[in-house]
Design a protein around this nucleic acid. Structure first.
Lengths: 342, 342
DNA sequence: TTGAAAGCGTTACCAT
DNA sequence: ATGGTAACGCTTTCAA
């Protein structure tokens, strides 16, 4: 079929008019440039006929904008990130943007490399879940005035736009809930990392503990142990070593998944022997028997704010950009797993 | 900081040499073009110093390849597609390709629009989970010699590269398994759609039924009912109307999720009263009590083959491309949910 | 051993 | 009311 792609030049030649005229018509400037109705119609008809589509590449090169946003997360296959990906996709396409994704695995080196691949001005903006080691790179992005929104975590000493949730207060509230259900010895299971969201959750937990006469036990699963089987094993050991535990708070859902496996292995009854709660609600928690109490992040809102924060940078001059900083509330879904017997 | 981006021209000027020379050195052709060691070193040092990165955009325009692959699936937030996304990402980046994703929602019109957005030669290849209505568009992609790999489903009367799994035989095998566990009345729950993979699964189910003295009950959830709550309701009605059912085969995992909720609502015991099996294994199935027997698609292999099929088209001349057609085997994970009492 | 220049497909300024 | 043309940043052929 169509061997050679039609270009604006071909159209101009075929119709015996100039490239400029075609371009104007294509860009809806026919009126403005006072090109005759008649010619406009003719050109439009021809464009339709040959099915011409302008080259994004050439447009990007010329205009200096690629209409591409990079969505750089820890792991795109993680349900949380995948859901956000789905939600921002809609909004992005609606605004003429496409999304390139990539996963960092929380690996600084890999993340740095990826950012450097993209900063090659082939990309208009970055949405990133940063790791602490990314600070210099993020800073350089900022220096280059590249639109940037951090999410899930942020960098307290960098002036960036971000969308995060109230990790600390939600963790505190959830811990209070466990305490109110009669827990006296609560285990907090988190990852051994200094990502801001994890630190905040841990602090919220500690705050609640400090305000009560509950005992706290903390397990930080080393990120080196990040093979599923190993996580489960670590948790199982932790549970076995602390038989007095009557409550368990997982800092994120994939830890909870492994934890549930461990609990099942140990034949502990939820919630009778162990009350369980997790950060990051998941479809699964609702289906599990008993339902797992969880803190739900407002996905839709996060996605909304993410794109809003991005778009409001994309349009404007670097000088008069507004860096939206959003902190969103979560909601606690109380299900069977955390209820004390009454 | 760096206000103006450095271009190859800036480098040439700064060093008082020509653009060509810089370009040659950048592209590792210094040797080949016999540019002096000395100059090469100098240029490389300077490039390092100013942190120059070539513009992908300009390169793409010049070379006619964007090094971008579109990954167009039904729904990127679906765990299956998200997992594949994660796996092909690795291979793509390793080969210098980036991935733009988009979700079709199985909506022909939306999918068509998306494809047309991309065919604008800003993209080097397409990986697509097609819907039947996409045939003309896919055909036109083929006509334009755009590298294309279908997956999850295929289009029997189109000569394309694809990666699919053995839906029919796996469904047959799974059904046989249910029968061997004593099921006499098996319900098959699928979506009302003519996607090839769903048809194949259904046929596999029927084949097994036909070879036995088992009775089959089929529920096709209308895609119009695709709100989660509605799916669950449809399934619940189906179960209530067919109390004789002693086995249930879900054609895909999200149906199973809703089905499990329905079963829980009806207080049916798995597997004592109802043996359950699902297509598309999921992390969740292993954790659920009892474990849900499921057919697992070989994700890694699918991703491997997907990129292999893509890359082997990307490199070659349209005329001498090989269209890889891959059909991969699944594996049945037997868990508690399908075991007959003995 | 190096350089000039054409060209990829656009847009937009400046002419006419 | 239209058209010529430079420029976006790069690769590559041809010349020197």
């Amino acid at each position: 079929m169509a061997k050679k792609k039609t270009s604006i030049k071909d159209i101009a030649e075929a119709l015996g008019i100039s490239i400029t005229t075609v371009s104007f018509i294509l860009n809806g400037k026919a009126r403005e440039k006072r090109i005759s109705e008649e010619l406009t119609k003719k050109v439009e008809a021809y464009i339709d006929e040959v099915g011409y589509k302008p080259s994004h590449l050439a447009q990007s090169l010329r205009l200096g904008k690629s209409k591409v946003i990079v969505f750089m997360v820890e792991d795109i296959s993680n349900q949380f990130f995948a859901s956000i990906a789905r939600l921002i996709e809609e909004k992005a396409y609606k605004n003429g943007y496409k999304i390139i994704y990539c996963s960092t695995d929380n690996d600084d080196e890999k993340a740095n490399e990826l950012i450097n691949t993209f900063r090659t001005r082939s990309v208009d903006g970055f949405i990133i879940t940063p790791t602490p080691g990314l600070k210099p790179t993020i800073k350089s992005l900022l220096d280059e005035d590249l639109p940037l929104v951090l999410f899930d975590r942020w960098m307290p000493d960098l002036d960036t736009s971000y969308v995060i949730v109230e990790n600390r207060s939600s963790a505190r509230e959830a811990t209070h809930h466990l305490i109110s259900q009669g827990c006296k010895n609560i285990g907090f299971i988190t990852v051994d990392s200094d990502q801001s969201q994890m630190i905040d959750r841990m602090e919220g937990f500690q705050e609640a503990i400090d305000q009560s006469d509950t005992k706290a036990f903390v397990l930080k699963v080393p990120s080196s142990a990040f093979v599923k089987a190993l996580i489960a094993q670590k948790i199982q050991e932790f549970l076995a070593q602390n038989p007095q535990l009557d409550g368990l708070f997982f800092a994120t859902n994939y830890l909870a998944f492994e934890g549930l496996a461990a609990i099942t292995n140990l034949k502990k009854k939820i919630p009778q022997e162990l009350r369980v709660i997790s950060f990051d609600d998941h479809y699964f928690f609702n289906l599990y028997q008993p339902g797992i109490t969880a803190i739900e992040q407002p996905l839709e809102l996060i996605a909304d704010k993410l794109m809003e924060s991005m778009l409001c940078q994309l349009d404007k001059e670097p000088s008069k950009r507004v860096l939206l900083k959003t902190v969103l509330p979560n909601s606690l879904h109380v299900r069977g797993s955390s209820l004390g017997e009454e």
